[in-house]
Design a protein around this nucleic acid. Structure first.
Lengths: 334, 334
DNA sequence: CGCCATGATTGAATCGTTTCGGTTTAATTG
DNA sequence: CAATTAAACCGAAACGATTCAATCATGGCG
């Protein structure tokens, strides 16, 4: 039924080995033979069988990407970047979504091993280290995304969260704000911890009062609730900085509902610069992370590692996030 | 290097065929033997090689999902649904994003054929029929998502767009609106055509005046621009219905910037009910589509088809969308 | 004209499974 | 106790590619 390299060979009147060479190292086959094989392939509508190729050659050319939440636009962009880079290099990307569920994560990891992926891209959740260790044992290269690798024999592509936190506060300070609310996620996420360190650092330098609000999940609803607390607190706060855009959008909604105007009554900054922030009712100032680039570069790095084998130099690349100024912030008027 | 079924067999003192039976039809192997094999597998840390299995057995247990835009929350949900169902049934989902680019779509289709997927889930863009024909020729089952299959020997899971358009207008009519702006996407999308038919149908019934605005892309920015036109037009319009939420969010932003209040000055309805609509500055009334369910059901159907082979009855399932009422609409006050 | 280097081509062995006809073992029956 | 049957198990062949040592052609050179 299925058409194999053998059929192509017999129709083109050459040996199977020659067809294989044509497929993988065309320069080694004479131009006349090339033509014959091309014709045979076209006639028979032949498409090579990836499984057979993989089985014999030992290298799978598929790389796994395991993200904790595919509905988060940040990860969607990461996936797009990784996917594009993968297919440009003739790799296949196997995208798995763990929904922040360790069970699903474990299952996906199992499948990825069955598929004999040649490399893994992963944004580790705080717990997920067990399954990753298994990958290591099997010598499957792994690179972290959005989380710096602590070990030097592993690559990672991450963001300078300290700088992100710091620059948001510096910017607000430059606008004249001196009392700022800081809405952060759980300490179990390295990102949150580092951003807060940056916040506190520049607050100290600029002599700013930080009111900290911490939530367990970084969803829109959580931002909404925090904003109500801020309004009730009757404090001097004139600016609000949220650890992600989802929460900032929640804050925005709460403030508008309570008759506040942005940026006059409160300046508001988010983090991530997801697409929806630009088209919010008040376009959001945000700390932009180059998600697409993160994914693309991580894919490129793991491909390099796969292809250059042992003599590969691991790198921990750290991007600087960028402040994107929109309508939700302005200079403080006394 | 790699551990194979053969190593397991020799360590467990059984034949390779027995190990294979243990893996695939455990009931056929005696309980004592089972224990031995289990132990050997655990000791050796054996994980079967999917490629070898596929090569020999001929069936791949991976299903492809090809979406036109992974950054659209609607498709993210579809992907989540399909992915969950796939892994519950021990299938692997290969998610590909074509970015609405026919070239990428073609390339992905090629890869999917190389991988010998056992079935394809696809939301066809208006052009993409060429590549799909190739799949048909190879007898790879294909089911459409969010687009009804015109042929009876193909399955599909789609939405009743006519009903969606109709019910939005009926709802607005019931609130007392008689002059409504309808912001639609290009006619090349079946969805848009059908929604419009529904709109026009109920407009006629309820004696409503529809002002139609058509855009080529259904992005937020397009909605923003249309809203400005509406404001300039100085018409009697009191309600705006957009063919997706992204555009509705753009409309919302434009209206608020121009000092209008929602829902007092204008009632506003979107379509899709993406997550961000609920947390917009004015939570959006919208026509909800069960994206997760669409993906999950489509996956289930293709799995059934794959497993039941020829005697499988193709179905064209059509869901009814649901009106979700939020703050952006209210009864008209004279 | 014979020799050799080079480039093209060949085809058998192999990758890790599943499949399936055949063999062994144990239990049942008359 | 011999004959019959069913349950377990065995192991060689096959899936469709790649690999690589071996063979074949070709042309340049002394």
């Amino acid at each position: 039924m299925a058409i194999s390299i053998r059929d192509v060979a017999s129709r083109a009147q050459v040996a199977v080995g020659t067809v294989s060479n044509f497929l993988n190292r065309p320069d080694r086959v004479a131009v006349a033979t090339r033509k014959k094989i091309e014709a045979a392939i076209a006639d028979l509508n032949f498409v090579p069988n990836a499984s057979a190729r993989h089985l014999r050659s030992g290298s799978s050319r598929t790389i796994g990407l395991l993200v904790p939440d595919i509905t988060n636009p940040f990860f969607t962009e990461v996936a797009r970047g990784a996917g594009d880079t993968a297919s440009e290099n003739d790799y296949t990307l196997l995208l798995c979504n763990s929904d922040e569920d360790p069970k699903k994560e474990e299952r996906h990891l199992k499948v990825l091993i069955e598929q004999r992926i040649c490399g893994l891209l992963i944004t580790p959740s705080f717990e997920g280290l067990a399954g990753v260790a298994e990958l290591n044992r099997r010598n499957i290269p792994t690179t972290f995304i959005d989380r710096k690798a602590e070990s030097l024999d592993q690559s990672s592509v991450s963001m300078d969260d300290f700088h992100g936190g710091k620059s948001a506060i510096e910017y607000l300070a430059s606008l004249g704000h001196t009392s700022i609310a800081w809405v952060n996620g759980p300490n179990s996420l390295a990102q949150c911890v580092n951003r807060e360190a940056g916040v506190m650092n520049s607050a100290k330098e600029k002599n700013i009062i930080i009111s900290k609000f911490q939530v367990s999940q970084m969803r829109s609803q959580n931002g909404y609730e925090v904003a109500q607390k801020i309004l009730e607190s009757n404090s001097q706060i004139t600016a609000i900085f949220c650890a992600n855009d989802l929460m900032a959008l929640g804050v925005l909604r709460a403030l508008l509902e309570n008759g506040k105007t942005i940026p006059e009554d409160y300046a508001l900054i988010g983090y991530d610069d997801i697409g929806f922030s630009a088209s919010a009712s008040i376009p959001l100032t945000s700390i932009a992370q180059p998600a697409y680039k993160l994914g693309a570069l991580a894919a490129q790095m793991i491909i390099n590692e796969v292809e250059h084998g042992k003599n590969f130099k691991h790198e921990q690349i750290v991007f600087k996030p960028e402040l994107v100024i929109r309508a939700s912030t302005q200079a403080l008027r006394k």
